[in-house]
Design a protein around this nucleic acid. Sequence first.
DNA 1: GAGCGATAATAGTTACGGGG
DNA 2: CCCCGTAACTATTATCGCTC
Length: 567
Amino acid sequence: MPPFSLHSTQTSRGRHHGHGHNTSAGKPPSTSSMMSPATLSGITPYPSSSTEQRGDHGHSEDKYKKLKRKLKEMVERNEKIIDDLERAKKKIRFLRKEKDLLLDRIDNITNKNDSEGNSSDDFSSNFSGSESESEGRSVIDSITSRSPPAAKRQHFTPYPTMTPIQPAKVPAHKRKSPPSSHIIPTNTVLAPPTSASSAPTPSARGHSKPKRNKKPPIARNVRRVQPVERDENGNYKLPAQVGILLVHNLGYVVPDRESFHNDRYIWPVGFTVSRTYPSMVDPNRNATYTCSISDGGDGPRFEIVPDDAPEQTIIANTATGAWTAVVRRANEVRKREHSNSASGPDYFGFTHPTIAKMIQDLEGARECKNYVWQEFEIMQSRTAAGVAAAAQKKLSNLEKMGSANKKPPADGVGVGTSAPRLTAAKISSIPAPIANGKHSRSSDTKRTSPTSSVGLKDDEEEELDEEDYDESNGGRHHDYQGHGSVEGSLEGDEELDEMAEDEEDVEVEEGMMEEEVDEVDDSDRENGVPRNEESMRNGMVTAQRDRRIEQAAEDSEGYEMDDMEEE
DNA sequence: GAGCGATAATAGTTACGGGG
DNA sequence: CCCCGTAACTATTATCGCTC
């Protein structure tokens, strides 16, 4: 069980415990705390109480409470033990690694002597922070200097036939997930993200073309990162707010298994972040999703636990898989017609430069042979301030509006410019030719183009914007605002046992397509105009306008307008 | 080999704050 | 006020592996 889930279980229990024992608060501590697990295990359900229990209800209740207390203690103890175990494992790994490296180094020194001055600066700055690594630094330094440039490394075909971990073929049933969901039940043995599509594993990539080759993955620019506080040992102070993500734990790198990194990302085991996102169960609320990576054996397991429905923990072999499930559910609950697509790396924070650097700074990152080392620089403080402030604002937008990119409506309504524009999502629902008209940035268009040149369109747009604003954003605003309080949900009423079980249970049976239902609903709400259709129109208008502005005299213009009006 | 589903990368959109 | 840099979100697209 992953640490966080245990944790969440535990906290729930804690709450439960608290509720249940208000009355007994004044009781003496009793000997319960002294009882060892062994003692506890000796206790059978309603054990010796058989004599007393019948006569005295109160006694058995007391015993029950005691048992609960003990159970809680044990859970806590268990958690600590797990923590310790993790730490120990980590240390062992590090030491083993170090040993290998030293041996390597010896080899290297005897063979050649070319490892001079390269990027040690960068490195030392990066690694100044790891904890037990003052010892390992020199080792890793040597690696830095002798390892081939990342760009070249990538073409090495790191794996192939000999990779021990890769199972020959992933059985079909593992590769193929249920039609509308790829959530993987916890109790299922996960398909390693290897040859199966799921993971961008280096092994998968090593011998095949990258998914996209428009941009060579190597040619990276220096990425600017926000300054993150470090403690006296140079470790990052956690939890750290990075954008809308709260980084709880960076985890540890598993360099010896290729499926735990690829050329772009490293997936450290234990990595944990949390973020706000629309709830999967309540269309009117947001939830805090705790995203973490656990060791799935052959590859990382990406787990997402919503705080408002921990029993709906989502586990997948890829970040995208996990987040797609969340997005899909969130959209379903809201009857939104988004494409449910989600960028897993994005949502997990791997694309975020600051987080990427924090991960890259972990010990062992250098040894991820397929990983292309990236260069980061701390952004200027004034920029950082702006970015942090903007992020904060986005966070509040997210909380209020369910989307970081939606401004809460201003008090005064007529916010012509500040009224939310059409979202990409809406535009997306237009037929391909239009949606694909990858118009230039609308903001640029707005600035540079003579928008007024299309007088009629402007009026039209105003109207549409207002509609959009009212029904979509305004509505959503009402939905989201004022839900800060934690109500209901799992607060304390549930029986202890169920939680642990449920936690691991990923039910998620996806309903059938809801589009039809959707349309009916919407058409009820709107005057006979299904919302998505309307969005479609809105989207078409904007997309068309932009396109027209860009390519001023196109015949398609009239054609598309006609099309639109026909609808 | 076509079709399909899953995945990740990328492009586009929206929004924000700081600085000139 | 405009420009710039950045972040977040969403749709689209390229690619892969599996099934039929």
